[in-house]
């Protein structure tokens, strides 16, 4: 899934110099490369796509091939400063499990996802078609996404699961959205912690 640069920049703001970072669904390692360059992090990525593993290796990324839906059991509690999942949460089956694992192995979690409640998506559904947009670039028949949720849905899950939302930023095509993000934002980025 193509990640937006503004997603990277927001995430980088929340990462301190020299942190230990885990990027789940790291793709070609673009975000980790960005964080290594701008924050000198010690970064590891988890990916399960053989093609992307090869790209990571060519880019010198510490990539670990694993199925994230099966958890992060190999990592010690609290080992990472930040565990990041950029635009991949909607492709996980075990949403609650992976959020719990992220906050087990990391002090904080950073999560971004496409907002299915975005007005253009709603408009598409009202017109009788599943949404296809910059944040949801796939057709219904070839999408890797398996969970379809809105900003409000996600925040309700956090409340229910005892996950603390430290910070939320919402965007429409790179523009920050402050008012009514569940309707006006296409992507949301969260900084999460434990109670």
């Amino acid at each position: 899934m193509p990640a937006y640069r503004y997603d990277y920049d927001v995430i980088a703001q929340w990462i301190e110099h020299g942190e230990k970072v885990l990027d789940l669904g790291c793709g070609d390692g673009g975000l980790l490369s960005h964080l290594i360059e701008t924050r000198q992090v010690r970064g590891y990525g988890v990916e399960n796509d053989p093609e992307k593993i090869l790209v990571c290796l060519k880019n010198g990324i510490n990539v670990i091939q694993a199925d994230m839906d099966r958890g992060l059991t190999g990592f010690d509690d609290g080992f990472f400063d930040h565990v990041i999942m950029s635009l991949s949460l909607q492709a996980m089956h075990n949403t609650q499990g992976i959020l719990a694992e992220m906050l087990r192995v990391g002090r904080e979690a950073v999560v971004s996802f496409p907002n299915f409640g975005y007005w253009r998506h709603r408009q598409s559904i009202l017109n009788g078609r599943m949404p296809v947009s910059r944040s949801l670039p796939y057709e219904w028949f070839n999408t890797p996404n398996v969970r379809f949720f809105t900003i409000d849905d996600f925040e309700a899950l956090c409340a229910q699961s005892g996950i603390v939302i430290h910070k939320r930023l919402a965007f429409d095509d790179g523009r920050v959205i402050v008012d009514d993000p569940n309707f006006l934002a296409s992507v949301a980025v969260y900084r999460l912690g434990r109670h």
Partner: peptide
């Protein structure tokens, strides 16, 4: 792999 990562070493796993 995990023991190396916990030591902060560079490691890739396929």
């Amino acid at each position: 792999v995990y023991a190396l990562a916990h030591n902060g070493r560079d490691v890739a796993y396929a």
